[in-house]
Design a binder for these strands. Sequence first.
DNA 1: ACGGTAGGTCTACGTTGTAAACTTGTCAAC
DNA 2: GTTGACAAGTTTACAACGTAGACCTACCGT
Lengths: 227, 227
Amino acid sequence: MTPTSTQTTKRLDPAQLATSALRLADAEGLEALTIRRLAQLHDVTPMAIYRHFADKDDLLAAVGDRILADIALPEPTDEPWEAQLHAVLAAFVAALRPHPKVAGLTLYRILICPEGLAMGERTMELLTQGGFSVDDAAEVGRQSLCGLITLVTTEPGANEDTDPIAREDALRAKRASLSALSPHRYPLITSAADTLICPASTDRYYALGINLAVAGIRGVLADLKDS
Amino acid sequence: MTPTSTQTTKRLDPAQLATSALRLADAEGLEALTIRRLAQLHDVTPMAIYRHFADKDDLLAAVGDRILADIALPEPTDEPWEAQLHAVLAAFVAALRPHPKVAGLTLYRILICPEGLAMGERTMELLTQGGFSVDDAAEVGRQSLCGLITLVTTEPGANEDTDPIAREDALRAKRASLSALSPHRYPLITSAADTLICPASTDRYYALGINLAVAGIRGVLADLKDS
DNA sequence: ACGGTAGGTCTACGTTGTAAACTTGTCAAC
DNA sequence: GTTGACAAGTTTACAACGTAGACCTACCGT
């Protein structure tokens, strides 16, 4: 008999709305995530949504937060800071990977929602521990995390095209466009066409992206220490 | 008397359309770049645009190409590959920087328009010269270039808000949101708040971003050579 | 002189986000 | 109990968007 258990009036829950919005966007792309579609999924009038979200941006923010909430931040260990940083970044990527079409929504939410803040703080902790000044840690951390978001949103195959037929078409078109190139003028691009269109292994793709970020941080740190 | 000089009928030029579309988007943001607005700028009916572009995506692609066309690729020198790569990436960023609000349009055009292809080929050239396999060069190059695009699109201050009053408001809101945080729970984030909101120097921001990319590449190369 | 065509116009449709005014089920207080 | 008050959902409406389709019309090659 709690007020949330049995109701005669319909009841929408912002959290449930955000999750089903996320599901919808995952399945059919961000452009399919429309107030009307979401309302329809809950057998409700479009305007009902606005009782729980100020406007569409507010809804998208909630979806972003929903994604960030899944970050499973690793516990601090006694490993060197670089290894721990790697683990934190990997955890971030792992949370984003299931949602390549909408991972971009997290960009402006990291410094707002608690899980994002926790990750940001932990990242800066490790960076300062490694030798960065607080301000440098802020800039380096910011850029690295942004880069990882991009890594996910530009994951080959993250494109729309829910049904495999259109997807296959898009792939073929891309392949055709690349194979139409002159191998004389663009020898390397044409010979790497397959990799450029779709990397051999997605896991490897992500592993490389994270390594690139960590290696960049280490390298920049060395440069800064010199000067 | 060339057919393009004097005309009684109005004449639209796709290239001019793309440039004024870019100007519009630069000034007021991507969401202000609408078929109707663009048509109005040329004293023409909205549908006239469609005589020159298949649809809006086609127009956006042209805008992306327009940006990439400004890449001033440096001549090959006898410097080490890393220095030359740095110069190429810097040239890329320099082309994007004037257009932070729309730089994302270049993402899917690099491997299509000639200037993008030239840069891609040159990048892969330098990477293979450094010791990467062709496939690794493709993946590393792809991720680095994507990362640099993100660097520009997430440049603090790239937000919309054409007039300085709304811009100042947004900044204040962000500052407030960060300074509302508990310095006890988030000591590093709160103490770096200013830097996180807006880095001290934009030039430094970009220099750091490019260095991060190059250092990452060098580091990953070393890792690959070990195994 | 004349037909074809490239370029621009007009009208119209469906979809989107959302403002404003309404209904209605629920609960606290008298 | 009756009575507001309020939170949640509905209804209606509007402006702006991308764009399809039918039209006009000035130009150019023959």
